[in-house]
Amino acid sequence: MKIAVMKQTRQNQGLKAARQGVSAAAAVLALLLWATPLTAQPLSDMPADGSDDSIAAETPGNPLSDGFSNDLPAADHAPVISAPDYPGRTAPGVAFSERAAPAFNSFSGADGQTPAVRAMPQAAALPVVVELFTSQGCSSCPPAEAMLAMMAQDPQILALAYHVDYWDYLGWADIFARPEFTARQEAYARAAGERSIYTPQMIVAGRDTALAPGPAQMMGLIDAARYRPAMVTVQREGDGLNGAIEITPLSDLGGRVDVSMVRYLPEREVEVTAGENRGRVVTHVNIVQSVETLAAWDGTAPLRLTIRPGESASDQPPDTRHALLVQQMLMPYGLPGPILAAIRLD
């Protein structure tokens, strides 16, 4: 699916959510998940953003398009420091830059036809994003993916699975892994001041994570994200991949905000024949295929995106889904920060 996006700025420019309960099955899955060790890996020097030439972004008159870079600080000049003692297999060392941005992310430890225009109240219609970093080569990950699958059934949660490639050397190459997803996880780690990356890892709203969270703690992080004051409002004209979206700031957004298109597959089953999950049939949900930055926005005036299907729609599986992420970027290195809004397009 090729998306052409046209952006223009204009000078003119709720919080109530039903808390979702956690079933007994989720609790069992959580026990299975956290009875298995996490696996940690050193950071590598990769770009902070993935690129996908199947999306074209046209941003006429965008003063920010040429003024920002998503490049991470070079890790090859950074000292090598010891990784923390995570349970299970831990990487021997981590290349990490002393110049990395400060830890702004609050990472915590353990435990028919629609009307032409419609407003989307922040709490009622905009889901909380939960990002899982996972791998088919990680024996700890299937229970975490089962938990993510349960979250994906909640319309108030946008669950996304990013498959990383740093465990491929163990004997099984994850067919959904992309180096840019590893780079995204590394960028989150740098933004948080973390010294290693590991699987499985869940990050809520781009800002909160925890080592070995149970279901109650995960729902606590999600509820905290739901009840934070809204930073933007969203209006849509049309539906799906046809129409326009306008994002309006409610306060100072603190600098650069990226609007990115995420493509993902709803569900796939994979038979793993080698590596740590040899002999298992693993079910994946909401498998991210690509993330493409459509606009860099300064957040000082409303941003309007016009979306239409492109010519190469047949290149994507017919069940491909699309969402927009509106995410603060931590300067000067363009590291990912809080996700201010998520918008399902189909």
Rank of each mutant, 00 (worst) to 15 (best):
L132W: 08
L132S: 14
F133D: 05
F133C: 05
T134W: 09
S135E: 07
S135F: 11
S135A: 14
Q136S: 02
C138Q: 01
C138G: 04
S140W: 11
S140E: 05
S140T: 09
C141R: 05
C141I: 04
P142N: 02
P142L: 05
P142C: 05
P143Y: 04
A144L: 05
A144F: 04
E145S: 08
E145R: 01
A146N: 08
A146Y: 07
A146C: 09
M147D: 03
L148G: 06
A149W: 06
M150C: 11
M150N: 12
M150L: 15
M150H: 13
M150R: 13
M151C: 10
M151Y: 13
M151L: 15
M151D: 10
M151S: 12
A152E: 03
Q153N: 13
Q153T: 15
D154N: 15
D154V: 15
P155W: 08
P155I: 12
P155A: 11
Q156R: 11
Q156S: 12
I157F: 06
I157H: 02
A159Y: 10
L160G: 10
A161L: 12
Y162S: 04
H163S: 10
D165Q: 02
Y166W: 07
Y166L: 00
Y166S: 00
Y166C: 00
D168S: 15
D168E: 08
D168P: 15
L170W: 08
G171H: 08
A173V: 14
A173Y: 08
D174K: 11
D174F: 08
D174Q: 11
D174I: 00
F176R: 04
F176H: 12
A177E: 00
P179N: 02
E180I: 00
F181N: 01
F181E: 00
F181Y: 02
A183L: 07
R184I: 03
R184A: 03
R184G: 00
R184M: 02
Q185W: 04
E186I: 15
E186Q: 09
E186A: 12
E186M: 10
E186C: 08
E186S: 12
A187V: 14
Y188W: 14
A189N: 09
A189P: 12
A189R: 04
R190D: 13
R190G: 12
A191F: 15
A191I: 14
A192C: 12
A192Y: 10
G193D: 10
E194G: 14
E194L: 15
E194S: 14
E194N: 14
S196I: 13
S196F: 11
I197R: 01
I197P: 01
Y198G: 01
Y198W: 13
T199D: 01
P200R: 03
Q201P: 02
Q201D: 03
Q201F: 07
